[in-house]
């Protein structure tokens, strides 16, 4: 090992609780008590609090950027500001505003229609809903029972209690998010499922496109739908072709 180049990296790895290679572990055992390493360790330890404060600024900006991704809110704010500006002026402006608002609403409804027209929650095929004492059921059974009853908020709260949820659970959780009109959350889950080649990969791809459409990210949805529409074996081949025709 070239100590001059790498020794700080080993200290950083230990500091970050990363696994060391055998060579690194051996180096650490031999050198951890040297003045140089101790000084580096003290530096990193002391750096924590200043970085914690720095992180607040960074994280706040990051959270604000998530807000900018919320399409409905941005739209509502814009229409809200427009409305107050025009209402204070002339009748003509009010009429124009009404037309604009009507146009926006019609456009929004058209967007939403695709999702409500095509979204059909995936049936519960993993866990038959049990009868009897609900208190004896585990979170998976409770979640799937709520899911089957279309009580999606309640289903999501049970899904969240499941430790290390499987791909299957995450797939149904994504469906539940779509069921309560939280496409950003649904998209997060479906994108992961598609990229991890899960059992529900094909199905997830379909729900991923619906989430994208709900988020007004039609171009991305179209790209995925086009690939689905070329694969006759895809579980949502027909739906993809149909929706593609309408969106394009």
């Amino acid at each position: 090992m070239n100590e001059e180049v790498h020794w700080e990296d080993i200290v950083a790895k230990v500091f970050r609780r990363e696994e060391l290679t055998d060579t690194e572990a051996s180096w650490w055992a031999q050198n951890r008590d040297t003045a140089e390493v101790k000084e580096e360790w003290e530096f990193l330890t002391n750096l924590h609090d200043p970085l914690l404060r720095e992180n607040r600024v960074l994280l706040k900006k990051q959270l604000q950027s998530f807000e900018n991704k919320q399409p409905a809110k941005a739209l509502n704010n814009r229409t809200g500001k427009l409305r107050s500006m025009f209402v204070r002026s002339w009748r003509y402006a009010a009429a124009v505003l009404l037309l604009i608002v009507a146009g926006v609403l019609i456009w929004q409804n058209q967007e939403a229609d695709y999702v409500s027209e095509y979204f059909e929650p995936y049936p519960n095929i993993i866990n038959p809903v049990l009868k009897g004492d609900p208190s004896s059921r585990n979170p998976i059974e409770l979640a799937m029972s709520a899911y089957e009853n279309q009580e999606y908020e309640s289903a999501i709260s049970y899904f969240q209690q499941i430790n290390a949820p499987s791909d299957t659970i995450r797939f149904y959780q994504g469906n539940a998010y779509l069921g309560i009109d939280q496409p950003a959350q649904a998209l997060f889950l479906f994108e992961d499922l598609v990229s991890s080649s899960s059992r529900f990969g094909g199905e997830s791809q379909w729900f991923q496109t619906l989430s994208l459409v709900a988020l007004d990210r039609d171009q991305e949805a179209v790209a995925i739908l086009e690939s689905m529409a070329q694969d006759e074996d895809h579980p949502y081949y027909a739906e993809a072709r149909d929706l593609l025709e309408k969106i394009k």
Binding site: A12, R16, L44, H48, E54
Partner: peptide, 8 residues
């Protein structure tokens, strides 16, 4: 530095 040493 924040991302590496604080957020890990």
């Amino acid at each position: 530095l924040v991302l590496f040493y604080f957020r890990q």
